[in-house]
Amino acid sequence: MASLSIRDVYKTYPNGVPVLKGVDIEIEDGQFLILVGGSGCGKSTLLNMIAGLETVTKGEIQIGGKVVNDLSPKDRDIAMVFQSYALYPSMTVRQNISFGLNIRKVPKQEQAQIVDRVSQMLQIDHLLDRKPGQLSGGQRQRVAMGRALARDPVMFLFDEPLSNLDAKLRIEMRSEIKLLHQRLGTTIVYVTHDQIEAMTLGDRIAVMKDGIVQQFGAPQDIYDSPSNLFVAGFIGAPPMNFIEGKLVEQGAGVGIEVDTGVERGVLKLPFEANRVKPSIGQKVILGLRPERLTDARGAHDANSSDLQPLKVRVDVIEPTGPDTLVFSQINGKRTVSRVHPASNPQAQQDMTLLADVSKAVLFDPSTEARIA
């Protein structure tokens, strides 16, 4: 196992295009780090720099306390699993897994033991004599993981390993990777654009945009306390509702003016006026997760003091099985609510929702930064 330290790292290509702009990330031995963001945010470039496949323009990368900026990939004791699997089509599964062991001249008997151990761990021991063309996508991904595991490295790097799989297989392989990490306790750095993978797999998440880490922390902290509008909208499915309105005083507290098209009023917020004083009387953006805008059944675990009724006109409903998504308008903005299916909402009818403001967040519309 090894810790990972990325300190003030920049990457600029020879044509002058900046890709990474002062990235700082620290994880401990055995932690699972997720690098998440949209296309072009720099996450894969950062992974390649950790692997030694890209050079560092400025800054420092340490693995296990050792600076690796100038080390070649083979000297970093890492193993990488690619999106494309990168298997040799003419070799059997056994040969693919043991390929790196052969290169390092590991004795044949030890190779056989390692291949047996790894294939049993990944439940592919019955596939050892097949070739990649005879395997499903999930099986090929397991073989690619097996080849990395056979190396017994101090760190695993995964570059969007599940993006070529169908939805059902992605869920299965997510569980496999999580179980693998729990079994081995090895440090993992995992790149994805899928925020559900990020939330379910990682001990720590770095949310990236335009070469900058927008927020770094534990999954639940990022979900509950996003640092800006981008993070709030990127993490969560369905994403957080953003309701723009005027912030007004309510005694010693504050509220936001709301208009649902059915009723107008003020939604009281759990912030003291002194905390958000500069924003009082100004337009703000209220962030509210869909599960915090729900019905009585959905809000059963909330404190009654945090719940406020809000009557809306239902535009569209989307039943998902365990719950139903209700789309309506608040302050002219389409919002989504997560309600219990037994509430049986109907399109084009009025419905009373309960706003649980205990996890509400406020953003500044001009800077997009969180203010409360």
Rank of each mutant, 00 (worst) to 15 (best):
E54H: 08
A148D: 06
P290C: 04
E54W: 13
M155S: 05
K209M: 13
T186V: 04
I25D: 04
G64L: 11
D259Y: 03
D259K: 10
Y13V: 12
I196W: 03
M80W: 07
R7T: 10
G255I: 13
A79S: 11
V266K: 03
M199K: 04
G137Y: 08
M173R: 00
S175G: 15
R147A: 02
G100F: 15
I212S: 08
V9K: 05
P365R: 11
R130V: 04
G137K: 04
E318H: 08
M199N: 06
G146R: 09
R313Y: 04
L325C: 06
T200K: 06
A112W: 14
S305C: 13
F32Y: 02
D8L: 12
D224I: 14
R117Q: 10
I256S: 05
R7D: 09
I25S: 04
S227A: 09
T335A: 09
S225L: 12
P270K: 12
D152Q: 07
K333H: 15
R7N: 07
M91F: 01
S39C: 10
I25M: 04
V336L: 09
S358E: 03
D152S: 11
A86M: 11
T92G: 05
V357T: 07
R174C: 02
Y223G: 01
V115R: 11
L325D: 09
G265V: 12
F271M: 13
H340W: 15
S366T: 14
M49W: 02
P219Q: 09
N241R: 02
A252G: 03
L101K: 10
Y85V: 11
G42V: 07
I171R: 12
L20H: 00
H126D: 14
V93T: 01
K66F: 15
R292Y: 12
I235Y: 02
T12F: 05
G22T: 03
D125R: 05
E272N: 08
V258Q: 11
H300Y: 13
T92E: 01
D364F: 07
L180D: 09
K58H: 11
D129S: 11
E249I: 04
M121Y: 10
R275S: 15
I285D: 13
I50W: 06
D350K: 11
S305A: 15
D364V: 00
S366W: 14
P309M: 13
L354V: 00
T45Y: 00
T45H: 02
V266D: 10
A79M: 01
L128S: 10
D350F: 03
N164R: 06
A252I: 13
D125P: 00
I34A: 00
N344D: 14
E176W: 13
R297I: 15
E28P: 00
R76G: 07
L47V: 06
I6Y: 07
Y85N: 01
L269Y: 04
S304G: 15
